[in-house]
């Protein structure tokens, strides 16, 4: 059995995508993402007309690391963590809320949105997504077949990227 930190697929994936779409529309945000605590993007959505986002890998990694650092600060004061974190610049802001032990909801917004509006809709979306993720824990994840062909193929890809082992 594999140990993915979070598995989101099938109908639950579609429902969470729909929640993110509603959040973008009602909150007037630019981007909404579900990222795992290790910094990997699980799911993302972009508002209609929003500019192309920056690297989502970088965004997810920085948000997850920042959230961990903030939790460490909270721990210094005996708190388990900050459940939500808001950051506002002159043109852009981010809102991050925990989605249980493994994931985070990240909302990126600009001057066209108010923080109050973002918080209301992000908190509602977070509640619904938490329920979806909790429901998934009772369902067995799809399995992957890592046969010899898979091993051979990855070996070839490693050769292609880093050069043959004995080179």
């Amino acid at each position: 059995m594999l140990e993915p930190s979070i598995d989101l697929y099938g109908a639950a994936h579609a429902r969470v995508r729909e929640r993110l779409g509603e959040l973008l529309e009602r909150g007037r945000a630019r981007y909404a993402l579900v990222v795992d605590r290790k910094g990997f993007v699980i799911l993302h959505a972009r508002a209609l007309g929003a500019p192309k986002p920056p690297s989502l890998d970088s965004l997810a990694t920085l948000v997850a690391s920042n959230h961990s650092a903030n939790a460490a600060i909270a721990n210094l004061f005996g708190d388990a963590g900050f459940r939500e974190v808001v950051q506002q610049g002159s043109d852009v802001g981010t809102y991050v809320e925990e989605l249980g032990p493994d994931a985070l909801l990240v909302v990126v917004f600009d001057g066209g949105a108010t923080i109050g509006r973002i918080k209301v809709h992000a908190q509602r979306a977070a509640r619904e997504i938490r329920d979806e993720l909790a429901g998934l824990r009772d369902i067995e994840a799809p399995s992957l077949d890592f046969d010899e062909g898979w091993t051979e193929s990855t070996e070839k890809l490693l050769d292609g990227l880093f050069g043959p082992r004995d080179a």
């Binding site: 993915p4 989101l8 697929y9 099938g10 290790k38 910094g39 699980i42 992957l144």
Partner: peptide, 15 residues
């Protein structure tokens, strides 16, 4: 520990 994202069809590793 690897993260498998079935929807995005990705296997991710952290080194």
């Amino acid at each position: 520990m690897s993260t498998i994202n079935f929807a995005a069809r990705e296997i991710n590793f952290k080194i």
